[in-house]
Simulated scan of single mutants.
Amino acid sequence: MTSGTQKKFSHLRVIGAASGLGAQDQACADGPLAFHHSQAWHQIERHPLVDWGRTLFAPAADHLSATARIAELCHHLADELELALQDKVFPLVIGGDHSVAIGTWSGVARFAGAPLGLLWIDAHLDSHTPETSYSGAVHGMPLACLLGRGDKRLLNIGLPGVQVSAAHCVVLGARSYEPEELVFLQQQGVRIIDSEEILQRGFAACLEEAGKIVAGTPAGFGVTLDLDVLDPQLAPGVGSPEPDGLGAREIRLALRQLAATSGLRALEIVEYNPDRDRDGLTARLISGLIGEILPAIAGRGGK
């Protein structure tokens, strides 16, 4: 990974994506507002390079299916991301279930004018299609959608065709997934660095490789972080916890290094479920992660 020295962004803007429609446990819809009202956020909002922009909600229309409502939210979220980047603001999306990633990275791809690199940090592969999904939950499908496969309502939101370059996409930290997802990503050429490989090679070496892959496209790259990649003892406030996750120190290291890498266009932190949080532990962790990227944002400009 190479250090980015260009002054590109004026400040960091948080954008809430308040939807749980893609998840079995829909309480993560409350995640953005709960975090916005938390003491953890109040401590970091004093920073001169941070502001909270808009919080977007899925339409409440009863006549629309859950997928149609997710699609409409993702269209609005894509517009919001494109607008932030046009304003030279660094966007940080707080979700919401991981289906909102379809909107986030479609908007960034539209701004870039080409498919992005993407680092998908997650306990799961999130690469089912409606035909392969065991649960039908859309938050298990967003990476497939960004790679051009899935419900047609969730495709082509940013660019015609794929939004993410498979050759510059890495899934890091996966430890619970179905064979259909694995086969799909392998066929696409996505690099998967699972928890077993991290244990064997060490996190720093895996992160270095992942960073080089995703940053290797002129269109730039993004980072999406599902909080369930962390060990549930450290981040209990998630809807789909998996045992034996990564440590907070490792994730802090990842965001610090990636934020300093040329070409980073946006960050997304998803699946915060305040109903399952314990004493604000997960909210404080989110705040700490934002703090890790601020020095790099500050180095690229100021208000």
Rank of each mutant, 00 (worst) to 15 (best):
G4T: 05
K7H: 14
K7L: 12
S10D: 11
S10I: 04
I15E: 01
G16Q: 08
G16I: 02
G16D: 11
S19Q: 07
S19W: 01
S19P: 07
G20F: 04
A23I: 13
A27G: 06
P32I: 05
P32L: 08
F35S: 07
Q39C: 02
A40V: 15
A40G: 14
W41F: 15
H42F: 12
H42D: 12
I44F: 11
H47M: 10
P48A: 01
D51R: 12
T55E: 02
A58G: 01
A58C: 05
L64S: 04
S65P: 13
A68C: 04
R69N: 06
I70V: 06
A71V: 01
E72V: 00
E72I: 06
C74H: 06
H75G: 08
H75Y: 04
E80G: 08
E82P: 04
L85N: 09
P91I: 00
P91Y: 03
G95M: 01
G95R: 10
G96Y: 04
I102H: 10
G103Y: 00
G103P: 07
V108N: 01
F111A: 13
G113K: 10
A114T: 10
P115R: 03
W120P: 11
W120R: 09
D122Q: 07
A123I: 05
H124L: 07
D126H: 03
S127Q: 01
H128I: 03
T129L: 12
T132W: 03
S133C: 01
G136H: 08
A137G: 12
V138Y: 09
G140W: 00
R149L: 10
K152L: 09
R153L: 15
R153F: 00
L154P: 05
L155A: 03
N156H: 14
N156K: 02
G158Q: 06
G161P: 11
V162C: 02
V164N: 11
V164P: 09
S165A: 14
A166C: 02
A166T: 07
A167V: 08
H168L: 07
C169H: 00
A174T: 05
R175G: 06
S176M: 06
E178C: 06
E180S: 15
L185E: 00
Q188I: 09
Q188F: 03
Q188N: 10
Q188A: 15
Q188G: 12
V190T: 08
V190W: 02
I192P: 09
I192R: 13
I193E: 02
S195F: 05
E197Q: 15
Q200K: 15
G202V: 00
F203R: 12
C206A: 11
E209Q: 15
A210Q: 01
G211N: 10
V214N: 06
V214K: 08
V214P: 10
T224Y: 02
T224C: 13
L225D: 09
L227C: 09
D231W: 10
L234N: 03
A235H: 04
P236A: 04
D244R: 12
L255N: 01
L255I: 05
L255C: 07
L255G: 10
S262Q: 13
G263T: 09
G263W: 04
L264T: 12
R265L: 15
L267H: 01
E268Q: 14
I269P: 11
E271R: 13
P274K: 06
P274Y: 01
R276E: 08
R278Y: 11
R278T: 15
L281H: 14
T282K: 12
G288P: 12
L289A: 10
G291T: 03
I293G: 13
I293S: 11
I293H: 05
A298P: 07
G299C: 06
